[in-house]
Amino acid sequence: MKTVKRIIGTMALAAIMVLTVSCKDGNKNEPAAPMSNEMHQESMDDKDNMAMNDNQDAKAILQDYFKLKDALVETNNDKAKQLGATLASTLGSFDASSYSDNEQQELKDILEDAIEHAEHISESDMAHQREHFKILSKDVTDMVAITGTEMKIYEQFCPMYKNNEGGAWLSMNEEIRNPYFGDKMLKCGKVQREIN
């Protein structure tokens, strides 16, 4: 009996030690800025290169965003989940170090918010994916306002989404393909603005 007690005691003690160590990593009050550190860790030695990379970063985000949009147009829940996860990681690798302090702050806010929406899209049903996509679209639009874009983009708008609250999105094509309704109302919407 004594041995059993000792074994249990040792096991519990070992477990406590393991947990104490692992709990230290799980910071309770994690600041709401998971991306900021990474962004500043990059070296700043080649400014020109940086600027080019940033453009590439923004371009990569747009490309993944458009793929996600197309999955929503197709009303393909699983595909949108995957593409949401992809977009979240692309957003996470954006390097903002070549932008001004103000722009960096703004980009950090935008990316943080966008990542959260992309992550939600990776684990939600169709209706929620579309809700998050609406805000994600605003984030990406605001990002483009800072980074600019080489390719021509159309901002499109469907006034009927969410009981006539309306919803905007970005597309590379002028032709309307509605990501909020899919084939229920594939062509509902109009071009609101051309961004170049």
Partner: peptide
């Protein structure tokens, strides 16, 4: 609790940017 706080922590409200507050409120 950990999951809940990751999603929304009322104690850290002021630390969220306006953009995120908007998303959280939504």
């Amino acid at each position: 609790i950990q999951e809940g706080k990751d999603e929304l922590n009322f104690n850290e409200w002021a630390e969220y940017s306006d953009r995120r507050k908007n998303s959280k409120l939504r």
